[in-house]
């Protein structure tokens, strides 16, 4: 069996849930591939992995993979994931969100999850638009871009998701694209292995709702756009603000060791138990 067929048989609910709902050429499928390749490399058991997703085209990912899967409500995936992780810290919890999901409706949960530093992996698929509802502008839609709710050009400024996560206190933050698949596999694997809250921002394309309206071509054209706009983190650090205009950095932005919530809570438990015995 070819390596890829083995992975498909092992990790996808291939005989139950396919064909999938995504448009042909959508970046979500590429991310799905990267995710199972990365998980395979970690050698974790399928039973110890929980995939939690929000609502959106991206959120549909959870139904296709053969893990413990939880398809939650729009923007709230991290809150459910927090409960899962705290109730059973042995589980490896990976959260899949869209850009609107994670930073509009779920923005509050996103920054607090990063600050709290639970041992969770958050993957945000940033396709610059609300895909599922048909192409309304999102918090990552660039200034001036067209969307069904910004026919005259978007007048809001976009979030940079990775920088937001870093500022909010995540232990590891990286950015990749669905064009740079080898890098993406690495970034996801690193994020899963990282102790503490890790975020992978995945620059992707929604050619159907965003590319078409903004004259960026088909899925292949948009992959080329990712290729041409991405600058490796090391190089980006040497470039000026002007030089980085219309470009974005890829690679690991932040990797630091901070107190991990579950370990800290273990100490709280010990102290509380001691206090109770003294009271008795």
């Amino acid at each position: 069996m070819a390596e890829v067929t083995k992975l498909i048989h092992k990790y996808l609910r291939h005989h139950k849930k396919f064909p999938h709902v995504w448009c042909p050429g959508c970046g979500n499928g590429i991310l799905l591939g990267a995710l199972i390749r990365a998980i395979d490399r970690t050698r974790l058991e399928k039973d110890e992995i929980v995939i939690v997703s929000g609502i959106g085209c991206s959120g549909r990912l959870s139904v296709y993979v053969d893990f413990n899967t939880l398809h939650t409500t729009h923007g709230r995936a991290l809150t459910f994931a927090t409960g899962v992780k705290l109730a059973n810290p042995k589980l490896h919890v990976i959260v899949i969100m869209g850009d609107g999901d994670a930073t509009a409706i779920g923005g509050n949960h996103f920054i607090h999850a990063a600050r709290r530093n639970l041992n969770l992996t958050a993957i945000v698929i940033n396709n610059s638009i609300y895909g599922m509802t048909g192409g309304q502008y999102s918090p990552t839609t660039p200034y001036g871009s067209l969307a069904t709710t910004s026919l005259y050009g978007n007048i809001e400024q976009a979030f940079s998701i990775a920088e937001l996560a870093a500022m909010a206190g995540a232990s590891m933050v990286s950015r990749g694209t669905v064009y740079h698949t080898k890098l993406l596999d690495d970034l996801i694997e690193k994020a899963i292995q990282k102790r503490g809250f890790s975020v992978v921002e995945v620059i992707s394309h929604c050619h159907t709702q965003y590319g078409r309206r903004n004259k960026m071509g088909n899925a292949a054209d948009m992959l080329l756009w990712q290729k041409n706009s991405a600058v490796r983190m090391e190089k980006a650090r040497t470039l000026s603000h002007e030089e980085m205009k219309d470009k974005f950095s890829i690679g690991v932005l932040v990797d630091r060791d901070l107190p991990v919530y579950t370990e800290e809570y273990g100490k709280v438990k010990e102290m509380a138990k001691k206090a109770m015995t003294q009271m008795r």
């Binding site: 929980v50 939690v52 939880l70 939650t72 409500t73 709230r76 991290l78 809150t79 459910f80 994931a81 927090t82 409960g83 899962v84 992780k85 705290l86 109730a87 059973n88 589980l91 949960h109």
Partner: peptide, 10 residues
């Protein structure tokens, strides 16, 4: 959201 997640984890 958290209490639903925790309940699903047992």
């Amino acid at each position: 959201g958290a209490i639903v997640g925790a309940s699903l984890a047992g």
